[in-house]
Design a protein around this nucleic acid. Structure first.
Lengths: 337, 337
DNA sequence: CTGAAAGCGCTTACAG
DNA sequence: CTGAAAGCGCTTACAG
């Protein structure tokens, strides 16, 4: 609870002026300040554990070295993996983050502006259009996993259609011909389904069964159970998010079906870090959160530090992560009739 | 990218001095400033969308209305539920948060101090002792889910022993006499196990089997599978964290055992919000994250705003959340011999 | 009733 | 080689 030392304290202790302290500590003393005084200043600073008051620095420099993060939860979760990756990238670049829930607490967006964050990154839990509040655009903004067509801001999103296609291909390559897709609502789900459909069509497969299952484990369980008990059950499931995959896995186990012997399972990544932890680990198509976040911060920092201002719209390939939930389709007795 | 208005801009537009603007906008104009000028100031402020620069305010007031959050991940996860609850409580009290990973990036703790956060809350993912860096204690600190014996800081933790006892009682009350405990390492696990053991002993039960399973779903799967296939399988499982419960559920399903018909399952909460989502929803003892966080922020804000300084060590009861994973024990053929 | 001044803690021209 | 001054944007005594 003790008062922290100021440059004046250091100056007093070293017997010099405030300006001298500033010059020395900021490495602009060469040829200006005598060796002896430099030494004295450094000693005094160390002894007092002096470190400049960042608030005063900010008032003067008009930079806070702080980035505002606008995010919000959807029904499943906060975009934690993305946020963590944004934090890591920002830390490395020397920035601290102030995060607010832009949907639940829109008022805090203004609080961020008042505190003069240098810029914003908007992080969505799931691919979506998002209307950035007007005031926010008074500083550089980059959008992650979302976009605002009416705004000249860079935007970085996963290639969801490609991800869906990769998921389908995992099953096709294993020999499956009868696919089912379990999905929730939302733009990411739609695009992922589109990817699966296209790939299936290109491969000459019968149209996959697409079920709008929902967003919970239980939804995945119910949908998978229903399909698995139908007359002509699909041999391979694509789940557009991870809770559905867990539900499907539980449903299969409950029905005495083994994964991947009796049914194969592929999941798309929604940042819950769940699919890979299951038993067996579910093969999946990942959202490259670290890569996206690193690029986002790089773009933003480029604007903040070097005044670059070009708007980019980037789409990122989603890498495939094989898992032992994928095997060849189970041979089925030819349908009678 | 336009410059934001300052009090001077408002003063110029309203034709008054800066002081007048300040007085009017801070509600101290009564009897001091003429009605007409007040009106003029307010109009000008609105027109320019003036809002005070919080950086300048902070330099003057020596308060930033910002709380530093020190946290870190353990092997399973970040303490997300707690952090979310801390965020909500702090927002309501008018504070913004700056969060850093105190273990991975200790240097950022100093960055927080330089930026003059008003206080700190330390949030641990799992109950643990934590040595708060000395400099941090120069401002008010409250510790959540952790403690530092050598520091005069308030600390708020779950009653882990009580939680373990409640978990055991859920199974006892359903008629179980042969319990197994799946646990990871760490203080929370130890205390939870202690609670189970005591309760079992008090009820005159045979000592429960305690297995240091690990921290992953797979660990829970392997441990549960082993026990379920043993000669005298336990009828009820207590899992000290949620991934173990998921693993146990998958193991049971794989072995063709039904929950709760063949085996009952109880989980303790570790903030992953997983157990309740499963099929069936796993009965559990919850960590009261919202309650803990609300009290923590209340204590901290009391210190920040009213200078209260009493150190509290609080322990919070963990409420029981029944789930359909608990049923009466399956009758077993008497052991032969 | 209202404006000029001081000061929060910095850094950067600017004099000497 | 070094110190005094100005200014970032506020608010609060202090004069008038």
């Amino acid at each position: 609870m003790t008062r922290r030392a100021t440059a004046q304290d250091v100056a007093d202790l070293a017997g010099v002026s405030r300006s001298t302290v500033s010059l020395v500590l900021n490495g602009r003393a060469d040829g200006n300040i005598s060796r002896a005084k430099q030494e004295a200043v450094r000693d005094a600073a160390e002894q007092l554990r002096y470190t400049p008051n960042a608030v005063a620095l900010s008032l003067r420099s008009k930079r806070t070295e702080t980035i505002g993060v606008l995010t919000w939860p959807d029904r499943r979760h906060m975009p934690l993996a993305l946020l963590g990756a944004v934090y890591t990238a920002a830390s490395r670049a020397g920035y601290l983050l102030m995060m607010v829930d832009a949907v639940q607490r829109p008022g805090q967006v203004d609080a961020l502006l008042d505190r003069r964050v240098d810029g914003f990154v908007v992080v969505a839990p799931e691919l979506t259009a998002f209307a950035v509040p007007e005031a926010v655009a008074s500083v550089p903004v980059v959008m992650v996993n979302c976009f605002d067509e009416s705004l000249a801001a860079s935007s970085l999103v996963p290639d969801e259609v490609g991800a869906g296609a990769s998921a389908a291909r995992l099953l096709l390559d294993a020999g499956h011909r009868e696919l089912a897709v379990l999905t929730g609502d939302g733009l990411a789900g739609e695009r992922r389904v589109l990817g699966v459909r296209r790939t299936a069509a290109n491969a000459g497969l019968v149209e996959p069964v697409v079920l709008a299952a929902g967003h919970s484990v239980d939804d995945g369980y119910a949908a998978a159970r229903r399909l698995l008990q139908s007359d002509l059950p699909p041999t391979g499931f694509v789940c557009t998010h991870e809770r559905l995959a867990l539900g499907a896995l539980l449903a299969a186990a409950d029905l005495g079906l083994r994964v991947p012997d009796d049914v194969s399972l592929v999941s798309l990544d929604d940042g819950e870090d769940l699919a890979g932890l299951l038993v067996p680990p579910v093969g999946r198509v990942e959202r490259p959160d670290e890569v996206i976040a690193a690029h986002a911060i790089e773009l933003l920092v480029d604007q903040l530090r070097h005044g670059r201002t070009d708007v980019r719209r980037l789409s990122f390939v989603c890498p495939v992560q094989p898992g032992s939930s994928i095997g060849p389709p189970r041979l089925r007795a030819a349908p009678t009739g």
